[in-house]
Design a protein around this nucleic acid. Structure first.
Lengths: 337, 337
DNA sequence: TGACAAACTGCAAACGTTTGCGATATCCAC
DNA sequence: GTGGATATCGCAAACGTTTGCAGTTTGTCA
């Protein structure tokens, strides 16, 4: 493959001049530059990224770590939307994306071995072993979502309004008259679950009401588990009048359980779904949703990380992307007559 | 950051010995090796991948290109399953994955600039400009799925049994008594669409029957478009008695249209879904499916590419992964009484 | 003890770039 | 024509590895 030296030889100049010509640097005559570019084209020259990286100490790659171990988690459209956002910004800013799924290896080593310039950790869990290392070793890194307030260490993060959203949704349901509101959560090692459960409780408290533990169900983020738990809820002597489902993986399970019992939404039970999938408006009826702007979160995370890499610091360490409660037809007043 | 030279200095030996010790090569005394490894540990040493790549001419990265331009395409769980398969094999074989989504840039240049050792192109389209370049430049590359038989150039590929599957499904429906079988396709620049439409036609021909063009609908692979087209079909004076939906993106649109008209599956219409999503068994009724083993396709593609990279050649240039028609409850005999 | 092989070790080149620095050429004003 | 500023250019070092080769040590056996 063509190298800079070959171009230099062919053009009859030194290879430092070739380098300068190719990189749009000053100090090379226009006609020489033109000639160099022509020869480069002709030889199908491409700069050797490793050689470049070696001397510039920058490879132009962002590491994207998806630490989840279970297959179903990755099926969640969450990751597609996120990657889309990350990718669009990375492309625009001249970076590539290295995707690391569930590697049983320290994330920091990706950085230490100069494979990536920085790291984005997606859907981190509260008990993720490898994250403290990123902080300790000063690795440019952003986690999505961040840790709950008052966490033991501080690492840059991007969040959507996880807390506010659930708070708004519960308040909305309470205002509709609901009191027995079920919450299908994910595992409590998920930061999403933690923060959203806090919001759930707070919304009740702030209305002067009591929430009931029996309506709070901890799933493994799978549709089948959600199906099972929703079944348990509907088997209660006093089943909930509303349910909120934590993500796009659990929602189909919830809906399927409700439908299979012949219950009508929202007449018999109201449903609020949290997620980013557009499928919600294809359900019957269209779902009231906490629309999580995942692609935008991804875009923000990429921008954030690149700033961290290039400037070495960041203005704000915790970015929050606003989101919205979209009221459609799956929620209604209670009791319904 | 620690380099091999620092380790050498600290251990009081030459850095070539350090290199040999770290790489488990012969020609270094056991006690020296031990000492080197200890110091490496202590200094948190990680080899500089670019330096290594520069001399070894191998970076240990597979490029994964998703050329689709539309957002909805990427939402398809197809890609998640595929990445899962790719990632698992790559991890096992010591490779990383570079994800390139919809970059308006030659794929071959990724290879020429030594960013990747080889390339996997996902869901390639028949009119993809950048693929011929891979062939011309002899880039180690695998495309998923491959081109139809008799295509103008030959590039390694991995496929599931796209043709056979549809053929089996149509034959199955015909045997149930169906004659008016609709097919919601994707765009005809998709290799999936092309091959599957061929199979559709062949299945009819081989039964001595005629298919009707009006039942063949070309979507843009989105749920909304599928919803619209399914509406058109049901508005016909002689609507189809069965429909086959080409992927996980179109299926929800098809189902939603059917449900919104109050039609019963399979009493009023039979449905066969092609896809890899597990959501199909949560629908009501569970769907008869052509289960595409996408994760396995991904695994095969990664293995294939790695063989291509390491051996420089491959035994078979076109791998086919068997798949299955899973009969559930969305298909029934016709006419139904 | 000596000879020879085998194991070990270090030197230095090489991979393909970028870049600081000094040297040369060009240009302009006086 | 001279001085000085400025633009252009090439040399060589540097980035962190691997690796062929030559030199050194160690071990073995007669």
């Amino acid at each position: 493959m063509a190298t800079i030296k070959e171009i230099a030889k062919k053009a009859g100049i030194s290879y430092s001049s070739v380098s300068r010509a190719l990189n749009n640097q000053t100090g090379v005559r226009p006609e020489i530059r033109k000639k160099v570019l022509e020869i480069a084209q002709e030889l199908n020259y491409h700069p050797h990224s490793s050689a470049k990286a070696l001397v510039q100490n920058r490879i132009g790659v962002l590491g994207v770590v998806i630490p989840r171990t279970s297959e179903f988690a990755f099926q969640n459209p969450y990751y597609s939307h996120m990657l889309l956002g990350l990718s669009s910004v990375a492309n625009d800013m001249g970076y590539h994306l290295m995707l690391v799924i569930n590697q049983q290896q320290s994330y920091a080593s990706l950085y230490h071995s100069h494979l990536v310039d920085g790291i984005i950790v997606l859907a981190n869990r509260i008990d993720d072993h490898y994250i403290p290392e990123l902080v300790r070793d000063n690795v440019p890194a952003v986690v999505v979502p961040g840790y709950p307030d008052g966490w033991e260490f501080d690492i840059p993060s991007v969040n959507s309004e996880n807390y506010q959203d659930v708070y708004r949704a519960i308040t909305y349901l309470i205002n509709l008259g609901h009191r027995d509101i079920a919450f299908i959560l994910g595992g409590m090692n998920s930061n999403y679950s933690l923060v959203r459960l806090e919001a759930y409780k707070a919304a009740f408290r702030d209305k002067g009401l009591e929430y009931k533990d029996k309506y709070i169900k901890e799933s493994d983020f799978s549709k089948t588990d959600a199906f099972r738990l929703m079944g348990d809820l509907l088997n209660l002597p006093d089943p909930p009048s509303a349910v909120i489902s934590i993500n796009d993986a659990t929602t189909p399970g919830v809906l399927h359980q409700i439908n299979s019992r012949g219950l009508r939404i929202p007449k018999d039970i109201s449903v609020v779904a949290i997620g980013c999938s557009d499928l919600v408006d294809l359900t019957d009826p269209p779902l009231t949703t906490i629309k999580v702007p995942v692609t935008q979160v991804g875009r923000a995370a990429a921008r954030f990380l690149i700033e961290l890499i290039e400037k070495g610091e960041c203005r704000e360490r915790h970015v929050v992307i606003p989101s919205a409660l979209v009221v459609r037809e799956s929620t209604g007043v209670w009791p319904n007559r």
